[in-house]
């Protein structure tokens, strides 16, 4: 256990350093003069020069890299070009609405994904199974932003049941907050729901074939006890491992979904920053989301090793 943790920590650290390097390289990949592109084609030369100096773009590669890592260790990811505030402040400001949206979508994913997957597995090869699995594969095939727009047409344009977009903070109005998150979180959750339902079904079918399930049935336990206690607990193990992937997909989806529903979150910050070529914000958002993903995976693995003593690091 101790050696496993040590190994896991070291590889996490290596990945974090690499993640940061890749984020740093985004600005280096810009063809031509990044300062000119950030300032805009019509900017006067002294403005371009000011930006070049501000971001150290006139320095050699290794100096820029040291600046980046040095800043990162102090919690400083630079300054936004368009928002006149630090990148960290801009991201922290927008985090709550993304967390709320992703949280809603995560709950939807977990509840409907698990129920659908277990239900399909228990009724394997029946019409229930076929219907659920068809819906699941459709769920992983439709673009989330398109479903979002279709839902806006259905629930906000044709009938005025839910807002077509915008975000209400929970402090302003709890019910408004809830209503503003319904459509976007459904649109965001569909892909992960389909994915989780498919994984859960496959795992459940495998678990139900195991000897200990047959033993439980043979000793006369009720169907509910067998499925609910013995089988389901074992299904949860692989499900825990996909939580990292689900989280990553939620953040990916938030870029388009927050754009469709005008939610002022991290995803929309990213989408507007690519239009304004605000590279420091793009770099910062990349780094922070990837670092969160790496740390969540670390936590999942540690939890996993704690729960299942058979796991060794190799």
């Amino acid at each position: 256990m101790g050696r496993y943790l040590a190994g896991r920590l070291i590889s996490t650290l290596v990945v974090l350093i690499l993640v940061s390097f890749i984020s740093f390289c985004i600005m280096q990949m810009v063809p031509g003069d990044p300062a000119q592109i950030m300032a805009g084609a019509a900017a006067p030369p002294d403005e371009v020069q000011r930006i070049r100096e501000q971001f150290g773009l006139d320095q050699p590669f290794h100096v820029q890299m040291l600046r980046w890592y040095g800043g990162m260790l102090r919690g400083d990811l630079g300054t936004s070009i368009t928002l006149s505030r630090s990148v960290v402040a801009a991201i922290v400001e927008r985090l709550p609405s993304t967390v709320a949206l992703a949280g809603f979508a995560f709950v939807l994913t977990l509840v409907f994904g698990l129920v659908a997957g277990v239900g399909a597995a228990l009724k394997q090869d029946s019409w229930v199974d076929h219907t659920i699995m068809t819906l699941a594969v459709v769920g992983v095939s439709v673009p989330s932003f398109w479903i979002g727009l279709i839902m806006i047409i259905g629930f906000a344009v044709m009938v005025d049941w839910l807002p077509a977009g915008g975000y209400v903070t929970i402090a302003e109005s709890p019910s408004g907050w809830f209503r503003s998150l319904i459509l976007p979180s459904i649109a965001l959750a569909l892909l992960q729901m389909g994915l989780l339902a498919r994984i859960t079904r496959a795992t459940m079918i495998e678990v139900l074939r195991q000897d200990f399930v047959r033993t439980a049935q043979a000793k006369g336990l009720s169907r509910w006890m067998v499925v609910g206690k013995h089988a389901f607990m074992n299904v949860m193990v692989p499900v825990v491992t996909v939580i990292g992937i689900v989280f990553s997909l939620l953040l990916s989806g938030s870029v388009v979904i927050e754009t469709v529903f005008s939610i002022p979150g991290l995803g929309r910050l990213m989408a507007t920053s690519i239009v304004t070529r605000d590279y420091p914000v793009i770099q910062g958002a990349l780094l922070i989301t990837a670092a969160m993903f790496v740390l969540i995976n670390l936590a999942v693995d540690v939890l996993y090793a704690y729960l299942d003593p058979r796991i060794h690091y190799d």
């Binding site: 990945v15 993640v19 890749i22 985004i26 990949m29 990553s248 997909l249 953040l251 990916s252 989806g253 870029v255 388009v256 990213m270 989408a271 690519i274 793009i282 770099q283 958002a285 990349l286 989301t289 990837a290 670092a291 993903f293 790496v294």
Partner: peptide, 12 residues
Amino acid sequence: AFPGVMLAVAIT
């Protein structure tokens, strides 16, 4: 580690 769409968006 990067959310797929975010990385693709940053690169483009």
